[in-house]
Design a protein around this nucleic acid. Structure first.
Lengths: 221, 221
DNA sequence: GTCTATAGTCGGATAGAC
DNA sequence: GTCTATCCGACTATAGAC
């Protein structure tokens, strides 16, 4: 209805609410987050949540889709590049390099301050899936897992749709994921105050070493 | 004050509340969990939360300590066995076997239905640590990480207190942890409805393969 | 130690002026 | 599209009978 390139007043309100919602819902969870806190964090009136999103649940839904957008912003270019290179017969070494590149990208994303905000929301959906999880899984999780197992299939010369490829994918990704899910314990153990370039590089080096060892070992059976 | 071996009526109430609290707090989080829901799930009167625990926060604290007890019940015997064997000069192969045994135990615990309940609570504390996290970390997390890095140090012949040992410990444990933290995505990808003996064995086999490959590779630098 | 009843606060949603 | 004011239900905690 509005063909202006400049955002209308209403759109600015919507945007402020969504950004605040990611923060507040991520920190407090859906039930514990209050509409008053959401509105205050966004700097808008409380009644506008209902006007723009039809209620608290509608705002939550919008927050999920915002997260999807941010995550895809980070990984879609990389996934597209990998997809493009997977058409031909690529040697295993190149597939491994792409896989490591993908995991490197996730190390950066998952250790970033920004991800701390929305990773909580995703983690909640993993433990107690709502309709929001359908969106998250369909939007990027399945795609990442698909690429991951595809690459693993090429490298290990196994069926990418097999259970073996899945389990390898989960365990490889788990090595990266733990730096977000277990962050508090990791900070205590290491004394790290934040994850700056040095720590990220050290993590990536460890992942490289592990993944190469796992995927390049001789097949025993 | 009460030297009876049989539980008094009050102790039964306390116990019912704590068990319900682990369930409800785990599912809903501290703020979203209501005292009415807690009392109803325990089958006791709402006012008894205040009488026995001084309030909702006191009950949460008791729930954390209950979880600590359950986790230690699972892992303490194993940790003690490993500790006992670590006194002498044990060969790397035996250390690897013990490490795999430890990870196997965590696969069982983290895929169990029971852990689904309290793992949520621990995950929340990891993302947003409260005083509860101090208890969790001090009670078993630091101990598990300590044993893990100790074993890794022996196997790879490196300092167990080094960053290298820590990073290895995190990534190895991450391979197990992902089956709890990413459970919803894993269920979708694999179609598994639950983790029964077959699935657990497959996961353990994959972990064995991965960990052996990681720790038994030749040192390159 | 357990109950009912209730005080006092805060939650989401809405009506209606502008 | 945004605001104030308000309804009504749910919350934690407590007082007091038993």
């Amino acid at each position: 209805m509005n063909a202006d390139t400049s955002p209308t007043r209403g759109e600015a309100t919507r945007d402020a609410l969504v950004r605040a919602a990611v923060e507040i819902f991520g920190r407090d969870g859906f039930d514990a987050a209050g509409t008053r806190a959401l509105a205050e964090a966004a700097g808008v009136n409380q009644a506008l949540i209902n006007y723009h999103f039809g209620g608290k649940a509608g705002l939550y839904h919008a927050a999920i889709e915002y997260i999807v957008g941010r995550v895809r912003e980070h990984i879609d270019p990389l996934l597209a590049t990998i997809d493009a290179q997977l058409g031909d017969d690529v040697p295993a070494e190149q597939c491994l390099a792409m896989l490591l590149q993908l995991l490197d990208a996730f190390v950066v994303v998952l250790t970033s301050e920004e991800s701390g905000t929305w990773a909580r929301l995703i983690l909640r959906e993993q433990q107690d899936p709502s309709e929001g999880f359908d969106i998250l899984y369909g939007s990027f999780m399945s795609r990442v897992l698909g690429i991951l197992t595809h690459l693993i299939g090429r490298i290990r010369n196994i069926d990418p749709d097999s259970e073996a490829a899945d389990l390898l994918g989960f365990t490889l990704f788990g090595q990266v994921l733990v730096f977000r899910t277990g962050r508090a314990a990791i900070e205590r153990r290491t004394g790290w105050q934040q994850f700056s370039k040095r720590e990220i590089a050290a993590i990536q080096a460890q992942i490289h070493s592990n993944v190469t060892a796992i995927l390049m070992q001789e097949t025993t059976e």
